[in-house]
Computed example of a mutant assay.
Amino acid sequence: MTTARKTAAPKPPAAALAADAHWAATRERLLNRTRPTVRLTICDDHDAKEALAEAHFVRQRAQAAVDRDSEDEAAKATLGEAAAGLAQAQAAFDKASIVLRFQALDRKTYKEFLAAHPPTEDQAEDGYAFNLDTLGPVLIAASSRDGISEEDAAQFLDDWSQAEAEALLNTAFGVQREDRMDLGKG
């Protein structure tokens, strides 16, 4: 697995930081941010998935009843039961699931990976900027927080269904484009 390089940020003059304590604190927070991380949850237990979906529905219906009449004690009791049922269904789903975690690479490493995997002629004609077949396993392995190797990633991509392989690829690529910023009005 490739490790991300972290370069030391240049230090602004101490006088500038002392003159603007707010910027010094903000800068420190910006320098200490972690790159985005996302999770891919895999659950092969159809019954657990259905039970969780049903529990969500029952809880939403019970919440709607309380929202209609917040004084209705029976509705409140039903909501409590529904919440407990949802917690139980979620615990069963979590136990049956496999969670894979992926973290965005630093920008330089990501760009190096893209450059190292140029598209084939056919892929370039189709508008691709990189070779998905060779980059996919590399990116999955490099961004995996769980130690997925390139070999395992390639096997998963070959052996899993089309939809599941695409979900794995989309997760590894998607975290690279994860945006945690909000451009608002000042």
Rank of each mutant, 00 (worst) to 15 (best):
W160T: 00
V175D: 02
Q155V: 10
A74E: 15
A21C: 01
T37N: 06
Q155E: 15
I140D: 00
D133T: 15
I98G: 04
V38I: 15
A16V: 13
R101G: 00
K11V: 07
S144Y: 05
I42N: 09
R145E: 14
L169S: 10
R107L: 09
Q176F: 08
R59T: 12
A14T: 09
Y128F: 13
L105P: 13
A16F: 06
Q63N: 09
Q176C: 08
R101W: 01
D126Q: 12
R61H: 08
D47G: 07
V38T: 15
D159L: 06
R107H: 11
D69T: 04
L17Q: 05
D69V: 03
D45H: 07
C43M: 09
P10W: 00
Q123F: 05
P119Y: 09
A16L: 15
K111T: 09
S70T: 11
A96F: 06
S70H: 09
A96E: 07
E121P: 08
M181E: 10
T78P: 00
K95Y: 02
A62L: 08
D67M: 06
V99K: 14
A24E: 13
L31K: 05
L132F: 01
E121M: 08
V175F: 09
D126T: 03
A83C: 06
L168V: 11
D44R: 03
A19M: 10
A4W: 01
V58H: 10
V138I: 07
A9L: 05
T41P: 07
Q63V: 00
N131L: 02
Y110W: 13
E112N: 08
F102T: 02
A62C: 05
L30I: 10
D152M: 11
R107S: 13
T78Q: 14
A4G: 03
V66C: 01
T109F: 04
S97R: 06
A142P: 04
R180N: 12
V38A: 12
P12R: 10
E81T: 13
V175N: 03
A96K: 05
G186A: 14
A18Y: 01
E112F: 01
D20L: 09
A104D: 03
K6G: 04
P12V: 14
A83L: 13
L183G: 05
